[in-house]
Simulated scan of single mutants.
Amino acid sequence: MGLWEALAILAAGVGAGAINAVVGSGTLLTFPVLLALGYPPVTATISNSVGLAPGALSGALGYRRELAGQRPRLLRLGAMSALGAVTGGTLLLVLPATVFMAVVPALIVGACLLIVFQPRLQGWVRSRRPSSSNGGRLLPLGIYGAGTYGGYFAAAQGIVLLGLLGTALDEDLQRVNALKNALTFVVNATAAVFYIVLASPVWSVVALIALGSIAGGYLGARFGRRLRPEVLRLLVVVIGLTAAGQLIVDLLTGTG
Rank of each mutant, 00 (worst) to 15 (best):
V206P: 00
A221G: 05
Y195Q: 06
R225W: 10
A210Y: 07
L198P: 00
L219V: 15
R228F: 03
G220Q: 11
L208D: 01
L208R: 09
G216F: 03
L219F: 13
Y195C: 03
R225A: 08
G212S: 06
G220K: 08
A215P: 00
A207D: 09
I214P: 02
V205H: 06
R225G: 00
L198M: 04
A199T: 14
R228T: 13
V197H: 02
F194L: 06
L208W: 09
Y218W: 15
V206Q: 01
L211D: 04
L219R: 15
G212W: 12
I196Y: 00
A207Y: 05
W203Q: 07
F223N: 06
A199K: 07
T190C: 01
G224P: 04
G216S: 06
V206K: 05
A182Q: 06
I196C: 02
V187T: 13
L227S: 04
V202E: 10
S213F: 10
I209Q: 06
R226M: 05
A191D: 02
F194V: 12
F194M: 12
A192F: 04
V202W: 09
A207S: 07
S213N: 14
P229H: 14
G212F: 10
S213V: 12
V186H: 06
S204H: 13
A191L: 07
S204Q: 15
A210D: 03
V187H: 05
S200L: 12
W203R: 12
S204W: 13
L219M: 14
L227I: 14
Y218A: 11
Y195R: 03
A207W: 14
A221H: 06
G224S: 11
V197F: 03
G212D: 12
A210R: 03
I209M: 08
T190Q: 04
T184P: 00
F223Y: 11
R228E: 14
A182H: 05
S213E: 11
T184C: 08
F223R: 10
A189G: 01
A199F: 10
A191H: 01
P229I: 15
V187W: 08
R228S: 02
I196F: 02
G216R: 09
A221I: 13
A182I: 08
L183V: 11
R228K: 15
G224H: 10
Y195K: 09
V197G: 01
A192R: 12
N188L: 14
F185C: 08
F223H: 10
P229Y: 13
V187Q: 04
G220Y: 03
Y218L: 14
V206G: 00
P201R: 11
W203H: 08
L183Q: 07
G220V: 11
T190H: 02
S204R: 15
N181C: 03
F185N: 08
V197D: 03
S204C: 03
L198I: 12
S200R: 15
L183N: 09
V202D: 12
F185P: 01
A199Y: 11
L208F: 10
L227R: 10
N181G: 07
V206Y: 01
L227Y: 03
W203C: 00
A215Y: 09
T190M: 06
A189F: 11
A210F: 09
G212P: 04
V202H: 13
N188F: 12
I214Y: 00
T190N: 06
G212Q: 09
F194A: 02
R228I: 08
G220A: 06
P229N: 14
L198S: 01
V193R: 01
A210L: 11
V206F: 01
N188V: 10
T184Y: 03
R225E: 08
L183C: 02
G220P: 00
I214W: 04
A189D: 01
